[in-house]
Protein backbone atom coordinates (compact mmCIF):
# COMPACT_ATOMS: atom_id res chain seq x y z
CA UNK A 1 0.00 0.00 0.00
CA UNK A 2 1.35 3.39 -0.93
CA UNK A 3 1.62 6.32 1.46
CA UNK A 4 1.81 4.23 4.60
CA UNK A 5 3.35 6.32 7.36
CA UNK A 6 3.89 5.77 11.06
CA UNK A 7 1.41 8.59 11.76
CA UNK A 8 -1.25 6.87 9.72
CA UNK A 9 -0.62 3.57 11.47
CA UNK A 10 -0.84 5.17 14.91
CA UNK A 11 -3.93 7.14 13.95
CA UNK A 12 -5.46 3.90 12.77
CA UNK A 13 -4.79 2.31 16.17
CA UNK A 14 -6.44 5.24 17.95
CA UNK A 15 -9.40 4.88 15.59
CA UNK A 16 -9.51 1.20 16.51
CA UNK A 17 -9.48 1.97 20.23
CA UNK A 18 -12.40 4.39 19.75
CA UNK A 19 -14.29 1.77 17.77
CA UNK A 20 -13.39 -0.78 20.42
CA UNK A 21 -14.84 1.46 23.12
CA UNK A 22 -18.30 1.07 21.61
CA UNK A 23 -17.78 -2.69 21.46
CA UNK A 24 -16.63 -2.71 25.09
CA UNK A 25 -19.68 -0.76 26.24
CA UNK A 26 -22.02 -3.12 24.46
CA UNK A 27 -20.26 -6.27 25.54
CA UNK A 28 -20.02 -5.48 29.24
CA UNK A 29 -23.78 -5.13 29.58
CA UNK A 30 -24.33 -8.36 27.70
CA UNK A 31 -21.58 -10.16 29.57
CA UNK A 32 -22.76 -8.95 32.96
CA UNK A 33 -26.24 -10.30 32.43
CA UNK A 34 -24.94 -13.56 31.06
CA UNK A 35 -22.32 -14.03 33.76
CA UNK A 36 -24.73 -13.48 36.62
CA UNK A 37 -28.04 -14.72 35.26
CA UNK A 38 -26.97 -17.12 32.51
CA UNK A 39 -29.41 -15.32 30.24
CA UNK A 40 -28.43 -14.72 26.65
CA UNK A 41 -30.07 -11.35 26.14
CA UNK A 42 -31.02 -11.10 22.48
CA UNK A 43 -32.81 -7.83 23.13
CA UNK A 44 -29.50 -6.17 24.01
CA UNK A 45 -29.22 -4.47 20.61
CA UNK A 46 -32.79 -3.25 20.97
CA UNK A 47 -32.07 -1.79 24.41
CA UNK A 48 -29.12 -0.01 22.82
CA UNK A 49 -31.36 1.37 20.09
CA UNK A 50 -34.00 2.44 22.63
CA UNK A 51 -31.20 4.25 24.49
CA UNK A 52 -30.30 6.20 21.36
CA UNK A 53 -33.92 7.16 20.67
CA UNK A 54 -34.52 8.06 24.28
CA UNK A 55 -31.41 10.23 24.07
CA UNK A 56 -32.76 12.04 21.01
CA UNK A 57 -36.15 12.46 22.67
CA UNK A 58 -34.81 13.71 26.00
CA UNK A 59 -32.28 15.94 24.27
CA UNK A 60 -35.20 17.59 22.49
CA UNK A 61 -36.77 18.33 25.88
CA UNK A 62 -33.73 19.23 27.96
CA UNK A 63 -31.29 20.53 25.32
CA UNK A 64 -28.53 19.20 27.57
CA UNK A 65 -26.47 16.19 26.53
CA UNK A 66 -25.02 15.66 30.00
CA UNK A 67 -28.40 15.43 31.67
CA UNK A 68 -29.43 12.92 29.00
CA UNK A 69 -26.30 10.91 29.68
CA UNK A 70 -27.58 10.41 33.24
CA UNK A 71 -31.29 10.07 32.49
CA UNK A 72 -31.08 7.63 29.56
CA UNK A 73 -29.35 4.74 31.37
CA UNK A 74 -31.73 5.20 34.30
CA UNK A 75 -34.77 5.12 32.03
CA UNK A 76 -33.58 2.20 29.91
CA UNK A 77 -32.47 0.39 33.06
CA UNK A 78 -35.98 0.87 34.46
CA UNK A 79 -37.43 -0.75 31.34
CA UNK A 80 -34.92 -3.54 31.99
CA UNK A 81 -36.17 -3.91 35.58
CA UNK A 82 -39.75 -4.23 34.39
CA UNK A 83 -38.73 -6.76 31.74
CA UNK A 84 -36.83 -8.87 34.26
CA UNK A 85 -39.53 -8.76 36.90
CA UNK A 86 -42.51 -9.56 34.70
CA UNK A 87 -41.16 -11.36 31.63
CA UNK A 88 -37.81 -12.98 32.38
CA UNK A 89 -38.40 -14.03 35.97
CA UNK A 90 -41.21 -16.51 35.24
CA UNK A 91 -38.81 -18.31 32.92
CA UNK A 92 -36.09 -19.02 35.48
CA UNK A 93 -35.69 -22.73 35.92
CA UNK A 94 -36.77 -23.48 32.41
CA UNK A 95 -34.47 -24.35 29.59
CA UNK A 96 -31.90 -21.66 28.76
CA UNK A 97 -33.39 -21.09 25.30
CA UNK A 98 -36.71 -19.91 26.76
CA UNK A 99 -35.36 -16.53 27.92
CA UNK A 100 -33.34 -16.44 24.71
CA UNK A 101 -36.49 -16.69 22.61
CA UNK A 102 -38.29 -14.26 24.87
CA UNK A 103 -35.61 -11.58 24.50
CA UNK A 104 -35.32 -12.27 20.77
CA UNK A 105 -39.03 -11.53 20.36
CA UNK A 106 -38.83 -8.60 22.72
CA UNK A 107 -36.19 -7.08 20.46
CA UNK A 108 -38.71 -7.03 17.62
CA UNK A 109 -41.39 -5.53 19.84
CA UNK A 110 -39.00 -2.69 20.68
CA UNK A 111 -38.04 -2.14 17.03
CA UNK A 112 -41.66 -2.09 15.86
CA UNK A 113 -42.70 0.23 18.68
CA UNK A 114 -39.96 2.69 17.77
CA UNK A 115 -40.96 2.47 14.10
CA UNK A 116 -44.52 3.37 15.06
CA UNK A 117 -43.48 6.16 17.42
CA UNK A 118 -40.63 7.75 15.45
CA UNK A 119 -41.09 6.56 11.85
CA UNK A 120 -39.09 4.31 9.54
CA UNK A 121 -36.58 6.89 8.45
CA UNK A 122 -33.90 7.64 11.03
CA UNK A 123 -33.66 10.90 12.94
CA UNK A 124 -30.64 13.19 13.20
CA UNK A 125 -28.64 13.61 16.37
CA UNK A 126 -25.75 16.03 16.36
CA UNK A 127 -22.58 15.79 18.36
CA UNK A 128 -22.98 17.83 21.58
CA UNK A 129 -21.72 21.39 21.20
CA UNK A 130 -18.58 21.20 23.35
CA UNK A 131 -17.39 17.96 21.74
CA UNK A 132 -17.61 18.83 18.06
CA UNK A 133 -14.78 18.93 15.58
CA UNK A 134 -11.38 17.33 15.34
CA UNK A 135 -8.31 18.06 17.48
CA UNK A 136 -4.62 17.57 16.79
CA UNK A 137 -3.36 14.66 18.87
CA UNK A 138 0.23 14.88 17.66
CA UNK A 139 -0.13 12.24 14.95
CA UNK A 140 -2.97 13.93 13.09
CA UNK A 141 -6.48 15.21 13.63
CA UNK A 142 -8.94 13.06 15.50
CA UNK A 143 -12.58 13.76 16.38
CA UNK A 144 -12.92 15.14 19.88
CA UNK A 145 -16.11 13.17 20.48
CA UNK A 146 -14.36 9.87 19.88
CA UNK A 147 -11.66 10.82 22.38
CA UNK A 148 -14.42 11.60 24.85
CA UNK A 149 -15.94 8.20 24.10
CA UNK A 150 -12.68 6.43 24.94
CA UNK A 151 -12.47 8.34 28.23
CA UNK A 152 -16.13 7.74 29.11
CA UNK A 153 -15.78 4.03 28.46
CA UNK A 154 -12.67 3.90 30.65
CA UNK A 155 -14.49 5.63 33.49
CA UNK A 156 -17.49 3.38 33.21
CA UNK A 157 -15.40 0.22 33.21
CA UNK A 158 -13.42 1.44 36.20
CA UNK A 159 -16.60 2.35 38.05
CA UNK A 160 -18.19 -0.98 37.33
CA UNK A 161 -15.06 -2.84 38.39
CA UNK A 162 -14.88 -0.94 41.67
CA UNK A 163 -18.56 -1.59 42.24
CA UNK A 164 -18.29 -5.31 41.69
CA UNK A 165 -14.90 -5.95 43.28
CA UNK A 166 -14.74 -3.43 46.11
CA UNK A 167 -18.23 -2.91 47.47
CA UNK A 168 -20.24 -5.10 49.76
CA UNK A 169 -22.99 -5.16 47.22
CA UNK A 170 -20.58 -6.29 44.53
CA UNK A 171 -19.50 -9.09 46.80
CA UNK A 172 -23.10 -10.29 47.01
CA UNK A 173 -23.42 -10.10 43.22
CA UNK A 174 -20.25 -12.15 42.75
CA UNK A 175 -21.39 -14.67 45.30
CA UNK A 176 -24.76 -14.88 43.59
CA UNK A 177 -23.06 -15.71 40.31
CA UNK A 178 -20.98 -18.49 41.87
CA UNK A 179 -23.49 -20.14 44.15
CA UNK A 180 -26.96 -18.69 44.55
CA UNK A 181 -28.02 -21.48 46.90
CA UNK A 182 -25.47 -20.68 49.61
CA UNK A 183 -26.42 -17.05 49.28
CA UNK A 184 -30.01 -17.98 49.89
CA UNK A 185 -29.08 -19.98 52.95
CA UNK A 186 -27.32 -16.90 54.24
CA UNK A 187 -30.62 -15.06 54.06
CA UNK A 188 -30.11 -12.98 50.94
CA UNK A 189 -32.89 -12.59 48.40
CA UNK A 190 -31.21 -13.73 45.17
CA UNK A 191 -34.08 -12.68 42.96
CA UNK A 192 -33.50 -9.04 43.95
CA UNK A 193 -29.88 -9.30 42.88
CA UNK A 194 -30.80 -10.74 39.53
CA UNK A 195 -33.33 -7.98 39.07
CA UNK A 196 -30.72 -5.35 39.76
CA UNK A 197 -28.08 -6.95 37.55
CA UNK A 198 -30.50 -7.09 34.65
CA UNK A 199 -31.33 -3.43 35.25
CA UNK A 200 -27.64 -2.46 35.31
CA UNK A 201 -26.88 -4.49 32.18
CA UNK A 202 -29.71 -2.99 30.16
CA UNK A 203 -28.94 0.46 31.58
CA UNK A 204 -25.41 0.17 30.20
CA UNK A 205 -26.87 -0.89 26.85
CA UNK A 206 -28.99 2.27 26.90
CA UNK A 207 -25.95 4.34 27.81
CA UNK A 208 -24.01 2.87 24.88
CA UNK A 209 -26.96 3.80 22.67
CA UNK A 210 -26.90 7.48 23.55
CA UNK A 211 -23.10 7.55 23.42
CA UNK A 212 -23.21 6.04 19.91
CA UNK A 213 -26.03 8.32 18.72
CA UNK A 214 -23.71 11.17 17.64
CA UNK A 215 -21.55 8.68 15.73
CA UNK A 216 -24.13 7.20 13.41
CA UNK A 217 -27.66 7.47 12.13
CA UNK A 218 -30.28 6.83 14.79
CA UNK A 219 -32.58 4.29 13.16
CA UNK A 220 -34.94 1.58 14.44
CA UNK A 221 -32.60 -1.12 13.10
CA UNK A 222 -29.34 0.28 14.47
CA UNK A 223 -29.18 -2.40 17.16
CA UNK A 224 -29.25 -5.38 14.78
CA UNK A 225 -25.66 -5.38 13.44
CA UNK A 226 -24.43 -4.19 16.80
CA UNK A 227 -25.92 -7.23 18.54
CA UNK A 228 -23.87 -9.56 16.36
CA UNK A 229 -20.71 -7.59 17.10
CA UNK A 230 -21.44 -7.55 20.83
CA UNK A 231 -21.84 -11.33 20.81
CA UNK A 232 -18.55 -11.77 19.03
CA UNK A 233 -16.79 -9.61 21.60
CA UNK A 234 -18.45 -11.46 24.46
CA UNK A 235 -17.53 -14.85 23.06
CA UNK A 236 -13.94 -13.80 22.29
CA UNK A 237 -13.50 -12.32 25.77
CA UNK A 238 -15.18 -15.20 27.54
CA UNK A 239 -18.84 -15.00 28.42
CA UNK A 240 -19.39 -13.43 31.81
CA UNK A 241 -15.95 -11.89 32.19
CA UNK A 242 -15.66 -8.11 32.61
CA UNK A 243 -11.95 -7.99 31.87
CA UNK A 244 -12.58 -10.32 28.93
CA UNK A 245 -15.17 -7.94 27.47
CA UNK A 246 -12.79 -5.00 27.79
CA UNK A 247 -9.80 -6.81 26.28
CA UNK A 248 -11.80 -8.40 23.49
CA UNK A 249 -13.66 -5.17 22.71
CA UNK A 250 -10.45 -3.22 22.20
CA UNK A 251 -8.91 -6.13 20.32
CA UNK A 252 -11.86 -6.37 17.93
CA UNK A 253 -11.77 -2.58 17.43
CA UNK A 254 -8.10 -2.63 16.50
CA UNK A 255 -8.51 -5.68 14.25
CA UNK A 256 -11.35 -3.93 12.38
CA UNK A 257 -9.26 -0.77 12.04
CA UNK A 258 -6.24 -2.63 10.71
CA UNK A 259 -8.17 -4.74 8.21
CA UNK A 260 -9.95 -1.56 7.09
CA UNK A 261 -6.56 -0.09 6.30
CA UNK A 262 -5.01 -3.03 4.52
CA UNK A 263 -7.95 -5.12 3.28
CA UNK A 264 -11.04 -2.89 3.48
CA UNK A 265 -13.32 -5.48 1.88
CA UNK A 266 -12.56 -7.84 4.76
CA UNK A 267 -13.42 -5.38 7.54
CA UNK A 268 -16.71 -7.03 8.41
CA UNK A 269 -15.51 -10.61 8.12
CA UNK A 270 -12.35 -10.02 10.14
CA UNK A 271 -14.09 -10.00 13.50
CA UNK A 272 -15.73 -13.34 12.78
CA UNK A 273 -12.39 -14.79 11.70
CA UNK A 274 -10.93 -13.55 14.96
CA UNK A 275 -13.74 -15.25 16.85
CA UNK A 276 -13.23 -18.52 15.02
CA UNK A 277 -9.51 -18.39 15.74
CA UNK A 278 -9.96 -17.70 19.44
CA UNK A 279 -12.56 -20.45 19.77
CA UNK A 280 -10.23 -22.97 18.14
CA UNK A 281 -7.40 -22.20 20.52
CA UNK A 282 -9.38 -21.35 23.63
CA UNK A 283 -12.99 -22.53 23.45
CA UNK A 284 -14.03 -20.75 26.65
CA UNK A 285 -12.80 -17.39 25.31
CA UNK A 286 -9.80 -15.40 26.47
CA UNK A 287 -10.89 -14.90 30.06
CA UNK A 288 -13.87 -17.22 30.33
CA UNK A 289 -14.28 -19.87 32.96
CA UNK A 290 -14.59 -23.30 31.41
CA UNK A 291 -17.81 -25.13 32.06
CA UNK A 292 -19.85 -22.07 32.92
CA UNK A 293 -22.64 -23.37 30.77
CA UNK A 294 -22.60 -26.90 31.80
Amino acid sequence: MSGLTLELLLLQIVTGVALGSVFVLLAIGLSLIFGMLTIVNFAHGAFYMVGAYMGVFLYGLTKNFWICLVLVPLAVGTIGLVVERFLVRPLYGRNIDDPLLLTFGLGYVFIESIRILFGLNGIPFSTPAGLRGAVDIGIGYFPLYRLFLIGATGMLVLGLWLFIEKTKFGLIIRAGARDPEILKVLGIDVSKIWLLVFGIGTGIAGLSGILAAPLQAVTPEMGIPVLAEAFVVTVVGGMGSLIGAVTAGLMVGIVVAMTSLFMPEMAKVSIFLLMALVLLVRPQGLFGRAGLMG
Partner: peptide, 30 residues
Protein backbone atom coordinates in the same frame (compact mmCIF):
# COMPACT_ATOMS: atom_id res chain seq x y z
CA UNK B 1 -36.59 -24.10 44.66
CA UNK B 2 -33.70 -21.98 43.59
CA UNK B 3 -31.23 -24.82 43.56
CA UNK B 4 -33.01 -27.09 41.12
CA UNK B 5 -34.17 -24.16 39.07
CA UNK B 6 -30.69 -22.83 38.87
CA UNK B 7 -28.90 -26.07 38.08
CA UNK B 8 -31.39 -26.74 35.35
CA UNK B 9 -30.75 -23.32 33.97
CA UNK B 10 -27.04 -23.87 33.91
CA UNK B 11 -27.07 -27.29 32.31
CA UNK B 12 -29.73 -26.63 29.74
CA UNK B 13 -27.57 -25.69 26.83
CA UNK B 14 -24.05 -26.19 25.61
CA UNK B 15 -21.77 -23.45 24.32
CA UNK B 16 -22.12 -24.81 20.84
CA UNK B 17 -25.89 -24.60 21.03
CA UNK B 18 -25.67 -21.03 22.21
CA UNK B 19 -23.37 -20.14 19.38
CA UNK B 20 -25.59 -21.87 16.88
CA UNK B 21 -28.61 -20.09 18.27
CA UNK B 22 -26.71 -16.85 18.12
CA UNK B 23 -25.80 -17.38 14.51
CA UNK B 24 -29.41 -18.28 13.73
CA UNK B 25 -30.56 -15.19 15.51
CA UNK B 26 -28.22 -13.02 13.54
CA UNK B 27 -29.48 -14.57 10.32
CA UNK B 28 -33.07 -14.11 11.39
CA UNK B 29 -32.44 -10.55 12.44
CA UNK B 30 -32.69 -9.50 8.83
Amino acid sequence: MTNTRNSKRRSGMSRREILAAGAGGVALAG
